[in-house]
Design a protein around this nucleic acid. Structure first.
Lengths: 192, 192
DNA sequence: ACCGATAAAGAACGATCATTCAATAATCAA
DNA sequence: TTGATTATTGAATGATCGTTCTTTATCGGT
């Protein structure tokens, strides 16, 4: 078989930039250099290819973005700070399309592609749940103010990240994104 | 001529939900009940129709959303609070597609539709500039802390709004959005 | 009632869409 | 080397895309 990972890397860029509906199989063939029939043999159809692209993005980009959340050596604040700072730099990284694939690749799709939208939505919700769990662990260890609600705080942090992705798509620089991240962290409910 | 505003209202919903590329002329014909040739006579082409849809959305929705920013009776804080609260309620309004049209209708499009993306981006950037101007006016009148940067604060508020739109698309309730808005308004840099 | 002008629509256009088929090239056990 | 299997592809599929052409209604002025 052809090098599926290399092809997926190319496909990730394309879907990232143009979104699901606006990326045609002809585009994917031109970008990957793999014939359409071969892509179908490997991934069944466009939706299957996109599902594989999601997993490839998660393995190569999301893992790095969310690394601070899973790093046991970091305090809860440091973990969230690391997450937002990585978002700022990766969303504005010149070598990749701006913003986050998970947020913009299927922002608005046709009813025929509703299943695709769900795939990404589930990933977004799972990532938010991961963040909230980390905050709950921090709260259990007394790192957060007593009146702080980890669920609301997590949703807030996640919302800022999602907004940062739109900002990056509109041309925000890494420094602007870092300023936004810093301001979000100003709201941090540290234990007294 | 047919009732263009009524047709545009229908078209707004369709583009709002599905985005530019995923909304076909056939969809628009079915939804508006106006024949394709008539739509072309009135708006030239799909891009022209979309441009008219943008203006229709701005006149019927954005105006209401940004009303607090232009209300001279409100303090700067009240204006921003009103903006975020209106975002929370309108983004989750059951009668309309979730989120904000300006943020999601052309989040990711094909290179052929790049001009469409620019149209919406310009609207987003103009709205952000409007918010920042309001904050600068507040700063000039001593409503903000001396070390507060209106440009950064405005970008932050705007980022939260953009994130709230993604949250709404993913099913966030009005109460969840209000909690997010409330957290964004915490530690407001009020003058001492 | 009639007529020129305007508005609306049905049917067709070539282009492109995702997908598949038939045929070729590469691989490997024997 | 041979033969069966697998991998790969160019070409063709019907469907749908945005767009336009031609024809049919509609309408205000005389």
């Amino acid at each position: 078989m052809f090098n599926t990972d290399a092809a997926l890397d190319k496909a990730v860029r394309l879907f990232w930039q143009r979104g699901y509906d606006a990326t045609s199989m002809a585009d994917l063939v031109a970008e990957t250099g793999v014939a359409a029939a071969s892509l179908y043999a490997a991934f069944d159809n466009k939706a299957g290819l996109f599902a594989a692209v999601i997993e490839r993005y998660a393995a190569t980009f999301s893992v790095h973005l969310y690394a601070p959340i899973n790093d046991p050596a970091l305090s809860t604040f440091e973990a969230v700070k690391g997450l937002l700072e990585r978002a700022a730099s990766s969303f504005s990284e010149p070598g990749t399309p701006a913003g986050c694939f998970m947020y913009s690749a299927a922002a608005a799709v046709s009813p025929a592609s509703a299943a695709i939208e769900c795939l990404l939505r589930d990933k977004r919700i799972a990532a938010e749940a991961l963040l909230i769990e980390r905050l709950q662990r921090g709260a259990a260890q007394g790192e957060l103010a007593a009146n702080a609600d980890p669920a609301v705080l997590g949703k807030f942090i996640n919302t800022v990240m999602e907004g940062m992705s739109v900002q990056a798509r509109d041309g925000a620089t890494i420094n602007e994104l870092l300023s936004i991240a810093k301001m979000a962290l100003d709201r941090w409910p540290a234990a007294v």
